[in-house]
């Protein structure tokens, strides 16, 4: 469904993303992980049209969308959320979500009906009248999700929707994400919460210093020495293996 081929993006001399390749198939939940500063958010931004890639190609359902403006990519059915939540602060949750819903309808009643349905789907049914500015961290994360979902996407790019949440809230949002996938939306997510990655994702890609160093199932990834080293430092995998042998 989504194919990213050889994508690169540099800022000045810094290669934030270097020759990254990634595939998301219809109906999958795919996770993109990597240490802080690995370039995950930059890769997301380049896929969703917020940065123009220096090289590489992005196709969505066979259509080349490389370098298209974000609103065109959104209209084509792929929408992103922001790691640093961006609520419309002075309007309420219903109106926030309606902004997304207006993409597919010009009718106020229909936009409202859709927004309320989506808000309930992500568990914000009783917060519809709260202002964007008054939401908690968990509320803002859900709002990001709801607004994006209201645009009627085929593919949802979620940038750390669990960061800053407590374990109960994480468990809830994991269920929400799974339900969204079951309703037919494909999902690519950036996540640090490994427990969530393991329980949600079928495929995991690992980005380190701008390069894709590994991909596979969560179990394969956890066993990959390159991944362990990316997180714990050079030689860590070997030391761990020695430690395990001694024990």
């Amino acid at each position: 469904m989504l194919e990213v081929r050889g994508l690169s993006k540099a800022f000045g001399g810094l290669k934030a993303v270097d020759d990254a390749t990634l595939d998301v198939r219809q109906g999958e939940i795919v996770a993109l992980i990597g240490p802080n500063g690995a370039g995950k958010t930059t890769l997301f931004a380049a896929i969703a049209g917020f940065h123009t890639p220096d090289a590489g190609r992005v196709t969505l359902e066979g259509h080349d969308i490389t370098g298209l403006a974000p609103h065109r990519i959104c209209a084509a059915g792929m929408v992103r959320t922001f790691q640093i939540t961006q609520p419309f602060a002075k309007i309420d949750v219903r109106e926030n979500v309606m902004v997304g819903a207006w993409l597919r309808t010009g009718e106020r009643a229909e936009a409202m009906r859709r927004a309320e349905a989506v808000a309930r789907q992500v568990g914000m049914g009783d917060q519809l009248d709260q202002l964007g500015a008054d939401l908690t961290v968990a509320g803002r994360k859900r709002l990001e999700l709801a607004r994006a979902l209201a645009t009627g996407p085929k593919l949802l790019l979620l940038d750390e929707v669990m960061a800053g949440l407590n374990p109960t809230e994480i468990a809830e949002i994991v269920d929400v994400i799974r339900a969204i996938r079951d309703s037919g939306v494909t999902i690519l997510l950036i996540e640090h919460v490994m427990q969530a990655v393991t329980s949600l994702a079928e495929q995991v890609y690992v980005l380190n210093q701008g390069r894709m160093i590994s991909h596979g199932t969560p179990a394969e990834i956890a066993a990959d020495p390159a991944v362990v080293e990316a997180y714990l430092g050079h030689g860590a995998a070997a030391r761990l293996a020695r430690g395990a042998a001694h024990a």
Partner: peptide, 15 residues
């Protein structure tokens, strides 16, 4: 209003 409140978010939501 979405543009006034946050241009990046507005852009991401197809505006």
């Amino acid at each position: 209003v979405a543009i006034r409140e946050n241009e990046d978010a507005a852009r991401a939501l197809g505006i």
